[in-house]
Design a protein around this nucleic acid. Structure first.
Length: 532
RNA sequence: GCGUCCGUGGCUCAACUGGAUAGAGUUUCGGACUUCGGAUCCGACGGUUAUAGGUUCGAAUCCUAUCGGGCGCACCA
């Protein structure tokens, strides 16, 4: 819709035009302040320019009116255009809001270490990434969702050690000394049991078998992780294991050329020259690679696979890490502008206004799976998609357990269900509705139809700006329009029944499509949950 | 100290990335059903957009400084 208008303006003016939605619908469907920017070069007042432009659109079939108001150019779409577009959408529901973008994107997200279950911070990045993925795919981008598994390095050894310590303490009854950092939580207990079953109790006391134990355990942890993600409708196409990459190391180092050098018996990357605070060690004196080394080979591998664009989603606490990875990418001979790193900020939880209690059982982290169990996948996804990912978020669980309009996910679902109920009570046939023409609707229904047809713009905007919260914002507003319309206009049994219900069908299509892009299934009926 | 993200009604967040009168929800108060699901709707109260300058037709948005906060600043991941 907007594209159509944009294209018309481009044709007319020979330039790209900023198109916006006026705050007040009485101004029209779209508006542009173009006359202000033309004022300088044309040396005429914006008002005059706007007047002239407005009158040049007189013969258009797309617009019913084009007016200039205080230098703004306001467009009102014709009933004919809206009617045809709405009908097309209903006839081609799976095509609605879709596009054919021609770009291959590698989207890496979550990538939590296989040393423990996902916590609430991971969940935010996961939801953000998956929502972007759904939006992008809907727009036709060819996107691969990838999870990078850090299954090498110290944290893996620590996993083996943690299982042994827990097993020696709880199973063998020994007094053990815990080091400063080790993994704890219910899942460790589970791994101890599994380890005994598989290897026998001996493995708990044999330090030389720590590595063997860890390599087995990380697969178990990954199963837990994958299950948590699946419970939230998140699925990955590929998993790349750090441990499989090091065979490439010599070749990658050679590729970096002068970007790496030897000093004090270590290998460094000259990242400072590429904007980092200082150079970084990639291989220690004893020959063990650092964390960065893994990322260098991984990003080399990514670029060798040949995508048009790369997106990483990281926890915001890693933001200082961006310059050094970009530096590596450039030394490898690639364009670091193709690599886009997005951040997902911290999350703090409240429950009934009080800080959410972290359970000792879980090792003092808030587990993603606990929250999903408490409020459900839909609510979790909605919350995390509702706020800009790069700002800190605080939310109260209690708000999302309510069954009324204060709970946005409920409010939207209710709007969708309400439409289904109306349809089931319709006194006209489905054919009558499908064949109805969406004209002479009256101001309320016309406005509602337009709102519902805005979804394509929202999807495009949300993806290209990487601001997925625009989608839930839109859905909330659309649901509000629907509820208000429902209250204001009676439909069943009136002469306009067929066409009004057809408008509602378009609204339902938008709501359902929008929700599915958030990984949430639209409901046809609301089941009232019993108060506990 | 350096880097980075941020500061918008009492609270949680928006604002089409520089556009029209800064909008929603929540809270508080007041209204609306013998009517398609009141699980809803309407109204009121509430703002010098942290502060001070600057840029221009136009600033919450861009620039500078100050104040306040989160997160980084490893040969940990």
């Amino acid at each position: 819709m907007k594209q159509r208008v944009s294209a018309l303006l481009r044709e007319k003016l020979g330039r790209e035009v900023v198109l916006e939605k006026p705050r007040d619908r009485s101004f029209g469907h779209f508006a542009t302040p173009i006359a202000f920017s033309l004022a300088k070069e044309l040396r005429k007042s914006p008002m005059v320019i706007a007047e002239e432009l407005a009158s040049s659109f007189d013969d258009s079939e797309v617009f019913s009116s084009v007016e200039s108001v205080k230098g703004y150019l306001n467009f009102r779409l014709s009933e004919n255009f809206l009617s045809e577009y709405g009908t097309w959408a209903l006839d081609n529901p799976s095509e609605f809001a879709k596009q054919e973008k021609n770009e291959k994107i590698l989207l890496e997200f979550v990538s939590a270490n296989p040393t423990g279950p996902l916590h609430i911070g991971h969940a935010r990045g996961a939801v953000y990434g998956d929502t972007l993925l759904r939006l992008g795919r809907h727009l036709g981008y060819d996107i691969t969702a990838e999870y990078y598994v850090n299954d090498a390095g110290n944290q893996i050894n620590l996993l083996g050690l943690s299982i042994q310590l827990e097993g020696r303490a709880s199973v063998l009854g020994e007094d053990v000394e815990y080091p400063e950092s080790y993994y704890r939580g219910e899942y460790i207990t589970g791994l101890v049991e599994g380890a005994i079953e598989k290897f026998g109790k001996e493995i708990l006391s044999d330090e030389s078998r720590q590595k063997e134990l860890a390599l087995w355990a990380k697969d178990g942890v990954m199963e837990i992780v994958v299950q948590s993600l699946a419970d939230t409708n998140i699925h990955f196409d590929t998993f790349v294991k750090e441990s499989t990459l090091y065979s490439e190391w010599d070749r990658v180092m050679a590729k970096m050329g002068s970007g790496v050098y030897e000093k004090e018996g270590k290998t460094w990357i000259a990242s400072e020259a590429k904007g980092d605070d200082h150079d970084r060690v990639v291989v220690r004196e004893d020959g063990r690679p650092t964390y960065l080394a893994g990322d260098i080979v991984y990003h080399n591998q990514k670029f060798e696979r040949g995508y048009d664009h790369y997106i990483n989603i990281w926890g915001a606490d890693h933001h200082g890490y961006i310059p050094r990875v970009n530096a590596a990418v450039e030394y490898l001979g690639y364009d670091s502008n193709k690599l886009e790193t997005l951040l997902s900020q911290m999350v703090s939880l409240l429950k009934d206004g009080e800080p959410y209690k972290m359970s000792k059982r879980a090792g003092n982290v808030i587990l993603m799976s606990d929250i999903v169990e408490e409020i459900g996948s839909d609510a979790l996804r909605f919350i995390f998609a509702s706020k800009k990912s790069d700002t800190a978020l605080e939310f109260d669980l209690a708000e999302f357990k309510k069954q009324d309009s204060s709970n946005p996910i409920f409010y939207i679902q209710y709007a969708h269900a309400r439409i289904q109920t109306l349809l089931s009570k319709a006194e006209v046939s489905k054919e009558d509705i499908a064949n109805a023409t969406l004209k002479n609707l009256g101001e309320n229904a016309d406005s509602l139809l337009f709102d519902a047809l805005l979804l394509p713009e929202i999807v495009e905007d949300a993806f290209s700006s990487r601001q997925v919260q625009k989608l839930p914002d839109y859905l909330k507003a659309l649901a509000a329009s629907l509820h208000k319309f429902y209250y204001d206009v009676r439909m069943i049994g009136t002469p306009d029944e067929a066409k009004l219900l057809k408008v509602l069908l378009v609204v339902a299509l938008s709501l359902k499509t929008g929700l599915s892009l958030m990984g949430i299934e639209a409901k046809d009926r609301m089941e009232r949950e019993e108060e506990a």
